[in-house]
Write a protein that binds this DNA or RNA. Structure first.
Lengths: 185, 185
DNA sequence: GTCTATAAACTGATAGAC
DNA sequence: GTCTATCAGTTTATAGAC
């Protein structure tokens, strides 16, 4: 990772947990200070402003996601889709957290524009990956649209979390797998 | 409407706009006071606590939505689906706002539990309506799952708004109409 | 790098006059 | 119902010691 300062990473970890739990506008530097065991003023040494923290966090989140995607074998359609869906289901079911960018997207107009742009980058990464996968397997005209897959996954995470029923996400993912599988049989 | 006090309604209107724009945690009683032309202390006369305002707002939102749904002719599958989808597309494309409950769902864990429950009610209203529609037309096993339709609409609104591209929602809706239409031909 | 101390602004909320 | 005045607590952020 290009960012190896341990305290800086710990602050980002704490901020990620907080934002994914309550959103960007409902956590404070004092919250993070308690989480990592230093004073709130010291957080400003690592991230002068709250927006700096937010921007670096979304960049780290997106790059980690990109790294996962690059590991998938795109020649294996169902295999890489399984792994893609698993990123989403694990986030909610194992990690017990909604996607960072799903939360931030809902707060878009309250975010500094530089942060807003980084959230867009995450969605574009997802859309491009799904689009390339469809194209590679000649499914661009028959497979579910990338935008539909993405919005359904993000929406299902958010609503499953709000309803307190994680199976809602599992069910949605199962149906998408069926639809894709039907295309290759 | 069972709530006919004009100032109370004006406050709810202002709060709805604000929340749908920036979320529950990014607007203040002073913001609303400016919007409606009274002082922030006077808002507390109508809604003693912020949570009271939030709860009444989501109840009003849900009941208005229910009223719309009841007007649809459920015997006409494609007609009532068109109208259902139009509620969502108009909200974003005409009203230029994301669904109130999509925003609140993303902030769930930062909301008072009573407010959280009202958000669930809105989603259940949607799920029940879609479920009944499928059942009435004997499409329960073939039509898109209600949870998939709901999460995709809410997710598409949120992401279309965050991406600054409202066509993303339009495209998703067009595909669902196609999938439903394919079932009855 | 982390600390104490503090600033300036904002938050939800209350008391009491009119 | 709306006002003024105000509270106690919180927020992001800075200055300067260690």
């Amino acid at each position: 990772m290009y960012d190896s300062n341990p305290m800086r990473e710990a602050i980002l970890d704490a901020a990620e947990k907080r934002i994914r739990l309550v959103g960007y506008n409902a956590f404070s530097f004092r919250d993070l200070a308690e989480d990592v065991g230093i004073r709130s003023a010291s957080i400003h040494y690592h991230f002068p402003q709250k927006v700096d923290l937010g921007v670096h966090l979304v960049i780290r989140y997106t790059e980690r996601f990109r790294l996962q995607l690059e590991r998938f074998d795109r020649n294996d359609l169902m295999g890489s889709l399984d792994q893609f869906f698993k990123l989403y289901s694990d986030a909610l079911i194992v990690g017990e957290q909604v996607c960072l960018c799903a939360v931030l997207a809902a707060e878009t107009m309250s975010l500094p524009p530089t942060l807003r742009d980084k959230v867009k980058d995450f969605f574009n990464l997802n859309l491009n990956w799904l689009n390339d996968l469809n194209a590679q397997h000649n499914l661009s005209k028959t497979a579910p649209r990338p935008i539909e897959v993405l919005t359904c996954l993000e929406g299902a995470m958010t609503i499953a979390n709000a309803m307190g029923d994680k199976k809602l996400l599992t069910n949605v993912i199962a149906d998408y797998k069926k639809r894709y599988r039907a295309l290759i049989n």
